[in-house]
């Protein structure tokens, strides 16, 4: 294996993964707020925040689908070495990693079932920019409203008709992270 596929795991696993888990959980609990993940790093083109989500949330029972430029052997090697996760088709994946361009159509991913809405995919969306500027969001976990740069409004429209089923998103840029759960809506103007 390439050294780049072996480096970048946690040096103090229980502490680092717990700290990041807390951040990731809060990102979903308070959509739109921007948080920082640290500790691990994967090979390019994986961002720091995506790498840390993988290290913290993935294990042998999670199926990952890598799209576009992320679907590379050394990226797969890194994920396997550090998490033992397996890879699957986009339609069966628990975690999907890609850019906005790669992930469409959204309808191809698991959206859960009426009985088990949690059996759905989480999309880790790598973005070029992540700031509290752009579209206006509302919903559970947002006091009044919050602005965030998102690649496309469709991302929010898609979930609207499916609730309680749907997709959850992490927007990732460098070491920054923001959560967009299925319950988040656009503020209509």
């Amino acid at each position: 294996m390439e050294k780049s596929s072996l480096r970048g795991g946690y040096t103090n696993l229980p502490i680092q993964s717990s700290l990041n888990f807390r951040e990731i959980m809060m990102a979903m609990a308070k959509p739109g707020e921007i948080r920082t993940l640290t500790g691990g790093f994967g090979p390019e083109p994986l961002s720091i925040s995506t790498s840390n989500i993988i290290l913290t949330l993935c294990d042998p029972e999670t199926k990952i689908s890598l799209l576009g430029k992320y679907d590379r052997e050394f990226v797969r090697d890194w994920i396997v070495f550090h998490t033992n996760a397996t890879f699957s088709l986009p339609t069966e994946a628990d975690f999907v990693i890609g850019t906005w361009k790669d992930i469409k159509p959204l309808s191809q991913f698991k959206c859960g079932t009426e009985e088990y809405p949690d059996r759905s995919a989480t999309i880790i969306l790598e973005t070029e920019k992540l700031e509290n500027l752009g579209v206006n969001l509302r919903g559970p976990g947002i006091k009044t409203s919050i602005e965030l740069t998102i690649p496309d409004r469709e991302l929010l429209h898609f979930n609207q008709s499916l609730y309680p089923m749907g997709l959850d998103f992490f927007l990732c840029c460098d070491d920054k992270l923001s959560g967009l759960p299925r319950s988040t809506r656009l503020v209509e103007t």
Binding site: L6, R7, G9, T11, L13, F81, H82
Partner: peptide, 11 residues
Amino acid sequence: NAEYEFFRKPE
């Protein structure tokens, strides 16, 4: 004896 680095610390 030799210098080495951990890719994965013992777990």
